[in-house]
């Protein structure tokens, strides 16, 4: 022990270029903390605001109709294709909005699940693991049907289709989000926890100053990926619950006009126009936010 004490001063010596007299005029450098970097914070805040606006906006009516007399033959018609664009956008809006609302549930309930899973009591952590595993490995489509009949079977509860959709998407992706939180927390090296203990930090400081700032760079991109994944699953609700999203729009038009090619291709294109830039943004975030570890 005495040895250690004696060698410590040498280990603590500043780098060669830090002259001893500099201490007074020393300034804390604003190095790359992710939450202080405008190139990360501004896009993240903008995206967040955009999603909030989407969430609070009014739902447009889910009535789709074609006011266009398509040519008699069924070969692909560009004019018909473009004629459908406004209705597709309307459907896309409903799909995007359901995604955001569902994901709000997912992000918060997922945190709860992650904390339950971390619990030291087996009576809490095991059921949490079982729930996560069960929901994650069963199809969201079956879960939607299940939720629908469950609501029907419970006279006290009456929810409209869109609300059922938010809840199912929310719970389904909460299990994914909980894994993202867990992986993020586990990605903080053991040495960091030990250092926090060694410095005698109280739990609040430990979490807010040490763990969370290091976990977020791992969690945020993963959550972003799941947001995009949830967006891809929301149209299933159109088929099961008849919520008025893109797929419902295409099916309605198909039933009215008997022209299936244009609406389905159009929603495919519209979907890609949203999901590809979103996935690209997430990837950029992933590249930029990472802490360099040695």
């Amino acid at each position: 022990m005495a040895d250690t004490t004696r060698t410590e001063p040498t280990a603590e010596e500043p780098d060669a270029d830090g002259a001893p007299g500099d201490v007074v005029s020393f300034e804390l450098a604003q190095h790359h903390k992710w939450y202080r970097r405008p190139d990360i914070v501004i896009p993240v805040v903008l995206v967040f605001l955009g999603l909030t606006l989407l969430a609070v906006a009014d739902t447009p009516s889910a009535r789709f109709r074609s006011e266009f007399t398509p040519p008699g033959d069924v070969s692909f018609s560009w004019s018909y294709f473009f004629h459908l664009v406004p209705q597709m956008l309307q459907g896309l809006f409903v799909t995007a909005r359901a995604t955001v609302l569902g994901f709000l549930i997912a992000a918060s309930f997922g945190l709860v699940l992650a904390l339950l899973r971390r619990s030291e009591s087996r009576w809490v952590s095991y059921p949490a693991v079982a729930f996560i595993e069960f929901v994650r490995s069963t199809p969201i489509l079956v879960q939607m049907f299940f939720a629908q009949v469950l609501v029907r079977a419970t006279p006290a509860v009456s929810l409209n289709a869109l609300v059922i959709l938010f809840i199912v998407v929310g719970i389904h992706y909460a299990t994914y989000a909980s894994e993202a939180y867990r992986a993020g927390i586990n990605s903080v090296p053991k040495g960091q926890w030990e250092a926090a203990t060694a410095l005698n930090l109280d739990p609040l400081t430990k979490w807010t100053r040490i763990i969370i700032p290091q976990a977020v760079p791992n969690v945020l991109p993963t959550l972003g990926n799941y947001l995009v994944a949830a967006f891809k699953d929301v149209p299933i609700g159109d088929a099961v619950l008849s919520t008025g999203g893109v797929l419902f729009m295409a099916s309605t038009i198909r039933n009215v006009d008997f022209r299936p090619v244009e609406p389905y291709l159009l929603i495919g294109v519209g979907f890609l126009l949203v999901s590809l830039p979103a996935a690209w943004l997430v990837r950029r975030l992933e590249e930029r936010i990472a802490y360099e570890r040695d």
Binding site: V74, K232, P235, A239, V261, Y264, G268
Partner: peptide, 23 residues
């Protein structure tokens, strides 16, 4: 890769089952 991952699987399914045979 971008197309296969970017599109929703249910929409891809409807395109293949309904639109592609006609197109």
């Amino acid at each position: 890769v971008e197309l296969a991952r970017g599109i929703s699987s249910i929409i891809l399914l409807f395109i293949l089952v309904i639109a592609i045979p006609i197109l």
